[in-house]
Structures are given as C-alpha cells and as structure tokens.
Design a protein around this nucleic acid. Sequence first.
DNA 1: GCTATAATTTTGATAGGTCAAAATAAAAAA
DNA 2: TTTTTTATTTTGACCTATCAAAATTATAGC
Lengths: 220, 220
Amino acid sequence: MPSSTVENYLKRLFIEQQKQPGQLVQMGHLAEAMKVTAGTATSMIKALADSGLVDYEPRNGVKLNVQGEQLALHVLRRHRLIELFLVQILGLDWAEVHPEAEQLEHAVSEKVLERMDGLLGRPNFDPHGDPIPSADGIIRKQQLATLLNCPRGQLMKIARIVDQDTDFLQFLDRHALRPGATLTLVHLDTLADAVTLQLGGERTLVLGTRAASKILVEPA
Amino acid sequence: MPSSTVENYLKRLFIEQQKQPGQLVQMGHLAEAMKVTAGTATSMIKALADSGLVDYEPRNGVKLNVQGEQLALHVLRRHRLIELFLVQILGLDWAEVHPEAEQLEHAVSEKVLERMDGLLGRPNFDPHGDPIPSADGIIRKQQLATLLNCPRGQLMKIARIVDQDTDFLQFLDRHALRPGATLTLVHLDTLADAVTLQLGGERTLVLGTRAASKILVEPA
DNA sequence: GCTATAATTTTGATAGGTCAAAATAAAAAA
DNA sequence: TTTTTTATTTTGACCTATCAAAATTATAGC
Ligand SMILES: [Mn+2]
Ligand SMILES: [Mn+2]
Ligand SMILES: [Mn+2]
Ligand SMILES: [Mn+2]
C-alpha cells in the first residue's frame, strides 16, 4: 500500500507531466511543486524508481511509468470524486473543497469511493471542471481554449478552472465565473496584458492574462 | 495538530479507561490494545505526558488529563459520526464501517464534520448504539444491562453492541440482532456458560456468556 | 527476607520523510 | 576554452514511530 506521501508525489508528477507533455519533470520543478527541498525530491524519486513506479534519469528528470501512471490516475479519481461529493452531498463551497480532498483522498477506501460514485451518478467532471478518471484509469483529455486564445465576440461557456487557490476561486465565484457560466471575450489587449470580458447583463470585467489563462472555455 | 498516531492512543486510552473507571491504564494493557510492543507504548506515553495530554505514573499506569480527554472525545465524536454517515448516507453495512471510520476520523475537517452532523440531524448514537460525544465534548453515559444481568422473561430492546469485530457483527446481523431489535432472555445457565434467547416469532438462540455480555439492552 | 516471576522501562536499530549545507555536474557566459 | 552560474545529488542530522532484546523494578511465593 503506497503511503500518502507516495500518492501525493505520483499525483503531482502526473499533473506536472500533463502541463509539458512528452518532457521529463525536472527535480527542481517537482521539489517546488511539492514544497520540499530539492534533495528531498531526489531521494523520494529514487525510492519511487526502486519501487518501479517511475523512470528516473539522474540529472535529467523523471516520468511516471505505466504502473505509476495508473496509481496516479487512481489517486486523482479519488481526489476529484471526493471534491464533487463534498460540494453536491455535503454542500461545501467549490472554492474550498480542494484542501479537504487533499486529505480525504488518502483515507477513503474503494468501497466508500464506489458508493460516492454511485450516489453522484457516475459523474465525469469535478466542481472545477477537471475530468474524473474512470475506475479503470482512463481520463478523457479535453481540447479546450483559454480566455486568451478563444474566438472574440462569441458566447463561450466556462468548462474548467485550472487553479485550486481558494482565494482565486472565491474571487471568480463573486463574479459568477463558475464552470457552466457563459461569457464573451470582448477584447484582448496584449500591451496592457489584459482581456475584457462581457458577463451576463451589462457587466464587464477586465482580467490580467495570467488569470485569464486559467479559465478554460468552449463554445456555448 | 496531533498526528493520527496520537489521536489513536488518546482514543484508546479513553475507551480502556471507561472499562475500569478510576483506575490507571496499565502499559501492558495499552500496548496490547494498540497492537504495539510494551516499549513502544511506554515511549509514546512519555511523549504524550510531555505534551501535557496524560498523567503518567511510571511503573504504575497512565490516564488522560482534562486536555487529553477533550481531545479523545473529539476523535471519538468524529469516529462515530463518520460511522453513522457511512451507514445512513452511503448505505454501507453497519458491520463493516468501523475500519473505514478508523481511517477517516483523521482526515475529516471540522467543517466537513459539521455538515455531516447536520445532514444526519444531530444524532446521539452511532450504528452500534455507541453514544456520540457532543461538539463541546460531553458524552452521555448510559446505564445499560447486558444479556447476562437483565431481567429474565421480559421483553428487552438491544441498545448497544460493544464489539467492533466485523465477523461478530455480521453474525448478529444474520440473526437480526441489531440495535433496536427486541428479544427476551429466557434462561441463563451458569454451568453451561450460556444464555437462551427468545427472538421474534418462534426463533430461539443460544449464546455463550462471552458473546452475550457484549449485547447491551434496555426495557422495550 | 530472599528468590522466582511478571511487568515495565531502557537501549540500540530500523524505516520513512524531511532539511541544511557541501559536493558535483551541466549549462551559460565570457 | 575557461570561468561562472545554476541545477542536482550527496552527506550528515533530525523527528516520529516502531521492534527486539537487555536491564530494571515490583510482586508473589516460599
Ligand atoms: Mn494529498
Ligand atoms: Mn478539482
Ligand atoms: Mn484511527
Ligand atoms: Mn461504533
């Protein structure tokens, strides 16, 4: 049985790998993401390599192998199902479920997870629009535009938010920018580094490109 | 924040203390209950004493102090509320929720617990009939008879089962012996070390005194 | 009161995770 | 091609939790 530390590393590796497909994850990058020192990351990765969960190229980087990826997807499934459960069944705020799920994902058994899944009606997406891997470890990868590269002047629907920071999510929530909400990209000003959005009614909102790139949309 | 190991020791101390009120819990007894060696228990208890959670008399035994007891009650509350949640909301079997709760009790936040409590309607008892401590750490102590010392020939209601072993609980369940069920103590045979029970209908059941003493009842 | 026995505590080790600081290797700059 | 900078790995330590085995009490028996 993998420890929760191991589960966290695997999950993190999967997520970082997806951001730069094909490439190895650098030690420094991993250490930063896990909030540990580089030396700690190195020794952990060596242990994971010994357990046959990752391919490690010293001084080069690391990637999940097939077995590690399956495990990571399993943890990710638990995390995301739990998030949805907390929102749908217990009525927690979607902006604050991430840290809760971060703990619970290591404590929930297969049996309990299966019940949650059933109760939720075998959902495909979590409250942030992140896809939920299937029980057999398959994840649908979506091809979504960001608010920076989506068509201008066209009504779009928010599909996913790729940031788990509670304060950021609460900010979005205050402007009703949640998965499912619709909006239009009015203007992208590269010099000002900002986008102008048309929300419901007359409301207009200006976001910096950093923030805008975290909002993934699809045609409404 | 106490580690889950610390939480488990405190909970165990509380439960063992209740079995022999007033007395100190012996190291050997604690070690046995925690399934660790005596040396491990000793060093853990010394650590708990240093953290100001228990009163430790070397060579004599240990007991929770006020602070430790509050913490223990808090863990017990989490454990029991979770058990009820698993049965009522997720539909798990009451015979198998204990080990699940044993993990979840360390991962559930106050916020999540509060939602569970609300959803369950502020319950007072868990699926085994164990009382659930209140949020401010008060536990009602019940004065219940066992199937060994309850009045004979009188209809009794099962109030509580004081054993968490899944196989034993499933055995009870097969005979419909669950909290809330009614039955009559027909005969207690001290020589045969057994009791004869009258269940619903014509059904009769003979239990050894060891098993019978784990079934707590009250007048129906 | 002395001895055998049982319970408890100590000691020395190990495993998992972590950090700070030193050593090393690779990449970039000069 | 050297030198400097940056990233990675190693080393030495520490903390929590655990065990096995040795040392130390207490307790009971005689
Ligand atoms: Mn986690
Ligand atoms: Mn999510
Ligand atoms: Mn526990
Ligand atoms: Mn219970």
